[in-house]
């Protein structure tokens, strides 16, 4: 009897390990092992062509990095892009969530139209916008000139000061459905009674939004804002397909700088050091973010 129990107990302990093994192997080989290699490579002067000739150079890559203007430029671009695209995505998502969070005719169809941008592959989204933003024949320039915002068509993707706004536009068009859906789910958890109580107290629509809606979305906001920032810090496909980091490095985030350093300039060791700094930034940011949130919550 006792042996049967012991066997069953051991069996139950081993089963989750067996079930997790395939996933653990795949993730170790494709995610963990390269990350470990990447961190290690940061201490080598490896180049892509003579991979095995790379020598250990200690912290030399990091010393170069600290005085590399392109690195500091990328850091600035990353923060700018992260905050701008998060802000635009969030505002679009929240506005549309508020519009959809009421009884509407054709609600199902309208909701589907609002999440369609998310369904299109990133590369396709980028190509549509490159065409729409075309300097000579682009329809966006046509609208802006007709409406009087621009005197003449602008070369959105060729001008350093316009490329980032264009990139933020594409990012928020493609990503706002995620914010919309999460915020819509959040809005639906706010009890109707709270709105009714506010109305009895004579609160107008704006006041209800400030005092009922925003506090009700608080826990959703915490997660959503983190997701949006982390995603934009890690985003590659969209930026790479659209500008490759240009013009004049105006859209070269740390992710793109890592990629370009490795595959265009062929310095994998140095690229790995940049990527490791990005990883550290992501880690630090998440930790600080969560500690601040927990701290603020305790105070409240």
């Amino acid at each position: 009897m006792r042996r049967v129990f012991a066997r069953r107990f051991r069996h139950l302990e081993l089963l989750p390990i067996w079930l997790l093994t395939p996933a653990a192997i795949v993730m170790s080989v494709i995610l963990i092992w390269p990350i470990a290699q990447g961190i290690l490579l940061g201490f080598f002067n490896t180049r892509i062509l003579n991979y095995n000739a790379g020598r250990y150079i200690g912290l030399a890559n990091y010393e170069v990095l600290l005085s590399d203007p392109f690195f500091w430029n990328s850091l600035k671009v990353t923060v700018y892009y992260g905050i701008a695209s998060m802000g635009c995505t969030y505002v679009l998502g929240l506005s549309f969530a508020l519009l959809l969070n009421r009884s509407l005719p054709l609600r199902g169809i309208v909701r589907t139209i609002f999440i369609l941008p998310w369904a299109v592959p990133e590369v396709v989204a980028v190509l549509i916008f490159i065409w729409m933003l075309d300097a000579q024949y682009g329809v966006v320039n046509y609208f802006l000139v007709e409406a009087g915002f621009l005197d003449a068509p602008a070369a959105w993707l060729a001008q350093a000061d316009l490329a980032m706004p264009a990139l933020v536009l594409i990012t928020s068009w493609h990503q706002f459905p995620l914010a919309l859906l999460i915020l819509l789910a959040g809005l639906q958890t706010i009890p109707r009674e709270e709105y009714e109580a506010a109305m009895v107290d004579g609160a107008g629509a704006f006041s209800r939004f400030i005092h009922v809606t925003l506090p009700g979305l608080r826990s959703v906001n915490v997660i959503l804002i983190l997701i949006l920032i982390l995603n934009s810090f890690r985003r590659v496909t969209m930026i790479y397909a659209m500008t490759g980091g240009g013009p004049a490095r105006a859209t070269e985030t740390l992710s793109i700088l890592t990629y370009n350093t490795a595959f265009t300039y062929q310095k994998i060791g140095y690229a790995a050091a940049i990527g490791t700094v990005l990883l550290l930034i992501l880690l630090m940011f998440s930790l600080v973010y969560f500690f601040t949130i927990i701290h603020v919550r305790r105070d409240a």
């Binding site: 993730m27 092992w33 390269p34 990350i35 290699q37 990447g38 892509i48 595959f263 790995a272």
Partner: peptide
């Protein structure tokens, strides 16, 4: 944790491993 990993840092060594 995997949601924090930058894809570019993975891809650089992954390229070498795949080769």
């Amino acid at each position: 944790f995997s949601q924090l990993l930058p894809a570019t840092l993975i891809v650089v060594p992954l390229y070498v491993i795949f080769r």
